[in-house]
Design a protein around this nucleic acid. Structure first.
Lengths: 141, 141
DNA sequence: GATTACTGTAATAATAAAGGACACAGTTTA
DNA sequence: TAAACTGTGTCCTTTATTATTACAGTAATC
């Protein structure tokens, strides 16, 4: 799993802490310790899903489009990292002589899909707002 | 997630299909489409956990040590890939001025741990034997 | 309408991770 | 002693990820 998911979550939590003004990609990047261009790319994705509103030009930037309580980590995962868990390892040269080799691919794909669903189901229980709240009360689990 | 987990599962399913003799790393590598040295490395790990028995020298190789029905994919995941889901992205230069940045790391670590637990809990429902069985009856889900 | 401060996005470069290949010591059998 | 194995470390290539740069497009402000 790459870090795009974490950056997205961190950015959104940051935005949720600033409900009344826009934040520029540079400001977010400083918080998240990455580069403004990367932030913009990731935020583009979140904008397509309707989670943030963006504005170009002077005074522009990013702001939450909907209620932080309505956005789950599952939502973010699905828009940013879906299939990140799936194995990239793949070989189609399977010798047709062996039943195990020819079918294992299907079996593993199915298992990874299901396992990822369980992963996402857990993430769906967590909202951006709940993370912000936990941080605010300094009661970090 | 790297492919070591998949290679381990495939190898074990293959071994489960040969309960009465040892298979060499070369034979397994042919099935799994990787290199004998990589198979040996991964099998070493599985041997440490007691899932396979190994034997050096002529006629040596690998064979199942326990019942294929007793080994779950969760077992394999824990021995081969634990923490594969965890984010590697990490920055300790968090500016102490911002509450979000300073605590987000703890929060995300906790979330990834829990999410991985859900992932593993699903894998614990699947045994090597059940995979072999599904393949044998050609009823691949 | 020119300037400034932004986003959007692509291209390239640098870095990190994964996997393959090889080597060789150690072990067991014959 | 030779042959067929495992165990393990190291190097090299490939691939994936991330950083960096660049620049066109847009909106506000002077």
């Amino acid at each position: 799993m790459n870090s795009a998911f974490t950056i997205a979550v961190h950015s959104l939590v940051f935005l949720a802490s600033l409900p009344d003004r826009m934040a520029s990609s540079e400001e977010i990047a400083n918080q998240v310790f990455t580069h403004p261009a990367r932030v913009r790319k990731i935020m583009s994705c979140l904008r397509n899903e309707g989670y943030v509103k963006t504005k170009e030009g002077i005074g522009g930037g990013y702001i939450f489009e909907c209620e932080p309580g309505a956005v789950t980590l599952g939502n973010i995962y699905r828009s940013i990292s879906c299939n990140a868990l799936k194995l990239h390892w793949c070989s189609n040269e399977a010798s047709e002589t062996c039943l195990v080799s020819t079918h294992i691919q299907d079996v593993m794909n199915h298992i990874f899909n299901e396992a990822e669903n369980h992963f996402i189901a857990y993430l769906d229980h967590i909202t951006i707002e709940s993370i912000l709240h936990k941080i605010k009360v300094k009661q970090v689990f």
